[in-house]
């Protein structure tokens, strides 16, 4: 579909669904600033200008099938430079949302399914999660000045609830230490929930509003249950 030589079947053009979108894609001047500024422009021929043009033309089947919307990192630089203020990342997200869920790229699809079932993208059991946190906590306590460090799990009434990006309890455990140490030195009153701790929300990236809402709702539930007013949500 990346080939401009592809023949557009006119009876395939159905503008109705896209016309209801509030992203002003029909105002596109095709100036190309998005394509010139995009950090992934050119990967598999990805060209945001063409994508917006396809949406504007109503080529629904083609954009939904296309790989392009899944190459976009949704960094939003295009939106920042767009002279017509078109919310391109949201157009991309909405196109992703039109795909049959079974056809969502594998890792995102599986990760999201895991998160909805188990509360985290890795299907990490609660005991393992808590074990990893405590293990990292013990390593910190071996450092001078942090002898009394403990990871506060499920602490009711803490000042801040934090979520955890799944890679921090998988391959990047050392990255937990930096901010935990800052909390300790700053005498912050913080905690990590033992259930539904996942900080990445792949409902956002796959255009799945329902899943996104479920994930957000669980974080709110954690805050209510533990009577915590402030949330730190590092993705």
């Amino acid at each position: 579909m990346q080939e401009t030589s592809d023949i557009i079947e006119m009876d395939q053009i159905d503008h109705d669904r896209f016309r209801s979108w509030p992203f002003s894609q029909d105002f596109c001047l095709t100036c190309g600033l998005c394509s010139s500024s995009c950090p992934v422009s050119g990967i598999d021929g990805f060209d945001p200008r063409k994508l917006i043009r396809m949406v504007s033309l109503g080529l629904e089947d083609k954009v939904v099938e296309a790989r392009w919307p899944w190459i976009c990192t949704m960094c939003a630089k295009c939106e920042h430079v767009c002279p017509m203020e078109i919310d391109i990342p949201n157009v991309v997200r909405s196109i992703r949302g039109l795909r049959d869920r079974e056809a969502v790229p594998g890792i995102l699809h599986k990760g999201l399914a895991a998160a909805l079932e188990t509360g985290n993208n890795l299907r990490l059991p609660k005991e393992d999660f808590v074990f990893i946190l405590e293990d990292v906590g013990e390593e910190i306590a071996e450092e001078s000045g942090f002898e009394d460090f403990k990871v506060p799990v499920d602490k009711e009434g803490a000042n801040i609830l934090t979520t955890i990006h799944n890679k921090l309890v998988n391959t990047h455990t050392d990255d937990l230490k930096h901010w935990w140490k800052i909390f300790h030195v700053a005498k912050e009153d913080w905690t990590v929930p033992s259930d539904n701790w996942e900080g990445t929300n792949w409902g956002l990236f796959t255009g799945d509003d329902g899943a996104m809402k479920t994930m957000v709702g669980r974080i709110v539930e954690n805050m209510e249950k533990l009577k915590i007013k402030n949330l730190l949500w590092p993705e």
Binding site: G32, L33, S35, S36, S37, C38, S41, G42, D47, R49
Partner: peptide
Amino acid sequence: IRAIPGDIFRTDDDRLQMAFLDSNTREP
């Protein structure tokens, strides 16, 4: 070139490096 460029940076030898989508080659 039928595209408006993105950023411009100054090179060490005081020239201007510009990023754009080349509409002729269809490559960044």
